[in-house]
Structure formats: structure tokens, C-alpha cells
Design a protein around this nucleic acid. Structure first.
Lengths: 205, 205
DNA sequence: TTGATTATATAGACTGATCTGTATAACTTT
DNA sequence: AAAGTTATACAGATCAGTCTATATAATCAA
């Protein structure tokens, strides 16, 4: 079982530190996209490998706990992106009503661009793995709590008080979560805009 | 696939173990539970067979198009149950605000009873198969549209006007859909009640 | 500096289990 | 017998995960 021994290595022409965790990030990124679009169980490790360009060995090197660990990492990555979006949007809008409208526009554009094959990166995986997976469940929980808190803070910075802000933030999150599902099924951004307009009415009144 | 197997009708109403579509209904029922709890792709036909007690041959006899056809049938069955619940609830509540509170109580009890392993029977399958599956996609779309329309009618029967009733019904549906996901992740009925209370405030004001 | 040693990372063949779907035989009921 | 249903064996594909070998980096030895 001899293999070609390519001695071509050893050339350290570039000191670019590109070969450290070369494939780790690619794996998470690929998994995030695939899980989001087609679900957790329907996505095989082979597909993740192919899309990321990583070999099988790397997957189990970086994620000894296997597929579930990749799922958790993908959720974590997606969660951070969304949290940052929430914060940025909160900083650049003038009222809660503005905030939900702006976020709706963002989501709608995103869904349209993907031909309605995208959706919430957390929801898809969650419905297949929570509470079954001990690795994914806590990550998902933290993610939702973080989002909820970010929206709650946004409301409070506009004068809302604790208890009501908490419940309202939950409604906002629930509504967008559901609107993404409806948009996907109806292949239309309308549910997102309808939901946001009604939310805006509540937040303004 | 809907106009083929129902010619015998209710000619025989004996409770006796008559094996007409004996296994057909059991298959759909088993699939509905499993898809709802653990997802579409994660549920193998073997598991459906085992839970339903049907042999493999029956599955492909009643559903020649296989797993996707069972998925569509399960969605259809679940959709009808929910529609009926909506109508019954609408008939027995005195205002839209009452309606959402009553439905929240129903959902919360259901989730608690299942230890938060249940959820919306449509959402779970949808996120894995729409728009990929040509068999499931139209069923899911019809289901959501039917629900939306039922809630819209409820609102209009309380004096709401067309345009606003449409958008508000979408919000209500989205919010409950999302609240179920959050409840599952947080292993708590609070997101459902919080969401419903905020919705009630909007509907009352 | 050079050489040896260990740790990290890449690479893909391989495994046994499970997947969906098919084929065909054997009932059951009319 | 004929049609409708049940029953099981089977097939090819794919599944997640393990294995061994190799390559590159970092650390230590002289």
C-alpha cells in the first residue's frame, strides 16, 4: 500500500500562517449552511466534508465528538452573527418600531436572495436535536436567551420597563422565528413584512 | 394520492378488528408523532413501521411514493386537527384576546405533558423538506394558508377589517409557531404565555 | 546551528450499521 | 380464482465514526 511520497514540501517561502486551523473554520461554515437549508439529520458528514474541502480526518481531529459537536459549533457561530446584527441594528434605528421594520427588511432580502431555501440557522437544527442532544441543547438555549436579552435591552433603552420589555422581546423573537418558517413555505417575503408591521404597531402604540 | 383509497366509506361500522385500512391509519399516526418529535430525516421508515405495527409491505402498498408520501399524509392529518381546534376555540371564546390566551393554555399544557419534546407538527417537517419535496411542499403551504384564514375569519367575526385582519392573523400564527420553538429550547411554557399575553394586548388595544 | 522527539494536523480507506425502496411469496376476503 | 393486503428477504446506497499512515510545526538536545 505504497503511496506517492511527494517530497515537495519544505518550501517555506511564505510565512503566511494559513495552515493552522485551515479546515476548522471551513467545516463549521459549510455545516452551518447545510444544516440551515436542509436540516441536521438530512445533512451527512460526507456532504459537509465535500463542501468544506476538508478530509475526514480533520473533522474528527477538530471535533472528536463528531457531528453533534459540529452542530453545536455551527449554532454558536450563527448565534454570534445574529446577535451582532441585533446590536448594530439597535444602534442605528430610532425606535423599536423602526428596529423591527429594519430587521424585517434584512430578513426578507436574505430569504429572497436564497430563493427561500434559507431560514433561521438555529431553529432548523433545534427542532431535530433538542432536547435530545446534550451537546447542542445548551448552545441553543444560550443562543435564544442571548437574542432575547439583546432585544430586551433595546426596548429598555427606549424607556420600556423590565417585566414588559422581557415579554415583548419574547414576542418579537417568536414572531420573527415563525415568520421565517411561513416565508419559506409560502415562498414569499410577505409573512415577514406583515408580521413586522403588526409588531411595529404594537411597539409604537 | 388523495382520491384513490376511500371507496368503502362507512358501510361497515363494526368496531371489530376489521382490517380494511388497518395499517394505513396507524402508519400515518406513527409517522406524525415521530416526525413531530425528532424530525423528518431523523425518522427512518423502520421506526415508523415498528411503532405502527405495520409490515414493510403495507407501507409501500398504501404509499407507493414512499416516505415523502407518508410525510405529506402526516402533515395533512395534523393540519386538520389544528384547524378544527382553531374553529372550536374561536366559537368558544369571546374575543380575539381570549382566543390567543386559550390557545396558549392549550399549547402550554400539551408541551408540558410531552416534557417539551413536542412542537408544531408542520414546522418540523417543513424546515427539512420545503421547498425540496414536491409532494410535501404543497400540503404544507395549504396547511398554513388554511390556518391563517381560519384566524383571519375569527378576527373578522369580531369586527376586524380585511387587510388588517390578514396581517394580524399572520402575526398570531408566526408568533405561536416561534413560541413553540422557544418553549422547546427553554424547556418551559413561559415563552408561550409571554407571547400570548403580548398578542392579547395588541388584539385588545 | 543541527538532529531527535513530540504534538498537531491532514488524508482517505475502511467498517458495520442503517437507510429507503424493491421483489416476491403467502395469506385473506370476496 | 382474483383482488387486495400482509409478510419478509433482499439490494444498493449512504450513514457516522474508526483506523493507520503521513506530513508539518514546535520543542528539546547536543
Amino acid at each position: 500500500m505504497e503511496k506517492k511520497t511527494e517530497k515537495k514540501g519544505a518550501s517555506k517561502r511564505s510565512k503566511a500562517p494559513q495552515n493552522r486551523p485551515k479546515h476548522q473554520q471551513a467545516l463549521v461554515q459549510a455545516a452551518a449552511v447545510l444544516f440551515r437549508k436542509q436540516g441536521y439529520a438530512a445533512t451527512g458528514t460526507a456532504e459537509i466534508l465535500k463542501r468544506s474541502g476538508a478530509p475526514r480526518g480533520s473533522l474528527y481531529h477538530y471535533f472528536p465528538e463528531g457531528k453533534e459537536a459540529i452542530g453545536a459549533a455551527a449554532l454558536e457561530a450563527a448565534s454570534k452573527v445574529a446577535s451582532r446584527t441585533f446590536r448594530d441594528l439597535a444602534a442605528n434605528t430610532e425606535s423599536p418600531a423602526d428596529f423591527v421594520r429594519a430587521y424585517a427588511t434584512l430578513l426578507a432580502g436574505w430569504m429572497e436572495k436564497s430563493d427561500f431555501t434559507d431560514g433561521c440557522p438555529v431553529a432548523t437544527t433545534v427542532l431535530e436535536t433538542v432536547p435530545g442532544s446534550d451537546i447542542i441543547t445548551p448552545v441553543a438555549r444560550t443562543s435564544f436567551q442571548h437574542w432575547q436579552r439583546t432585544i430586551q435591552d433595546m426596548l429598555m433603552s427606549h424607556g420600556w420597563h423590565g417585566g414588559r420589555a422581557r415579554a415583548t422581546a419574547t414576542l418579537v423573537l417568536s414572531a420573527f422565528e415563525g415568520a421565517l418558517i411561513m416565508a419559506r413555505v409560502e415562498q414569499s417575503a410577505s409573512p415577514i413584512h406583515d408580521t413586522a408591521e403588526e409588531l411595529a404597531a404594537l411597539l409604537a402604540g
